[in-house]
Write a protein that binds this DNA or RNA. Sequence first.
DNA 1: GCGATTTTGGAGTTGATACTCCAATTTCTC
DNA 2: GAGAAATTGGAGTATCAACTCCAAAATCGC
Lengths: 201, 201
Amino acid sequence: MTTQRLTRKGQATRDRIVSAAARLMIEQGVARTTIEDIQAAAGVSPSQLYHYFPGKDALVSAVIEQQTAQVLEIQHSGLGSLDSIDSLTNWRDLMVGILTDVQCAGGCPLGSLASDLSESDPVARIQLAGAFEQWEGLIRDGLVQMRDRGELAADADPAELAVAMLAAVQGGLLLSQVRRDPAPLRIAVDTMIDHLHALTR
Amino acid sequence: MTTQRLTRKGQATRDRIVSAAARLMIEQGVARTTIEDIQAAAGVSPSQLYHYFPGKDALVSAVIEQQTAQVLEIQHSGLGSLDSIDSLTNWRDLMVGILTDVQCAGGCPLGSLASDLSESDPVARIQLAGAFEQWEGLIRDGLVQMRDRGELAADADPAELAVAMLAAVQGGLLLSQVRRDPAPLRIAVDTMIDHLHALTR
DNA sequence: GCGATTTTGGAGTTGATACTCCAATTTCTC
DNA sequence: GAGAAATTGGAGTATCAACTCCAAAATCGC
């Protein structure tokens, strides 16, 4: 699957389609997003869309791939690794900031897609499970470093704490989305950070 | 809005429609659930369905109402109130048990609907926000009792802890749904219980 | 610049979906 | 048990959404 058969212009068109599809699918749900909506948002004709993607499923897959990369990028960017209480606090601020910018609409890109597709698209479910596994791994790695450095009790379990932290993020984002208020995300993550803090002593 | 205009048989038919709609909407999403699907699952004709509900929106609203009652019922049933570490542990077992019974399919009824509808149905979003508020209130009440009884530190904040606990449940359910594994829910809730436990000392 | 390949435009087709309508039947009230 | 009201059956419609097709135009390698 080389991307080399695509002209520079072709690549740009493809990207435009995926980005438009991502925005719409995450906001209003995959089933509610019509191909026509995507065509209009990306400014392309039907034949162009079907030239790049065999059908809606392929488009969904491309969106998941793009969003996974984007979310993992945010975890790294500007923050280095999540390996101290301070960097975790910055990480929380970053997420709360992004959520506030979009007025709590959409929730988590991956979480929304996961909830939407888990029961209706087995392929997408597995793809999303992989995305969450990577995300969880990033958090876990930071916690291991903290433990090795003595910032976390030796008997703390980074693997379990990483699952709990990711759950707090997802649950917090969902509650924030429903209430249109960034507080639940902040509180959920802060509570987990408090918990880690308590495990130091 | 008296329910008295409904015959016993009519009430049964209405209930059958709502239950069928709930199962389908939660499993495969609202937009993917067609009126025809619901008709078939409930064993009714189009005219019956439209006799009881003006349209799909009204049906969605009825489903949310039913599921809210059902979720809040589970919180109470058999558990009394969530007012001690022990009862919280039983509560966790109950949720993990239910999730295991359905092989982690569907996630949280309210969470799935919230993620599905928050951006596309403002009325449903508000209805769901109310449901979560009630749920959160139940948890908060239990924590207040624990604090009053000295099972929780006096400076612990039951309101914030309730939000964090609900987020843990929602996030845990989502991760369990994607991974088809009840462990994330168990770990997320256990971690929050650990946190409460630590706040005793 | 030229030929091969990629990219694009837009009309058309097929199937599904939400919803309507009216007459027949059952159920409730008294 | 009679009349009114609630309930049910099923055929029908208008709209929309996914996807197809073919020919024209732009782009790339040489």
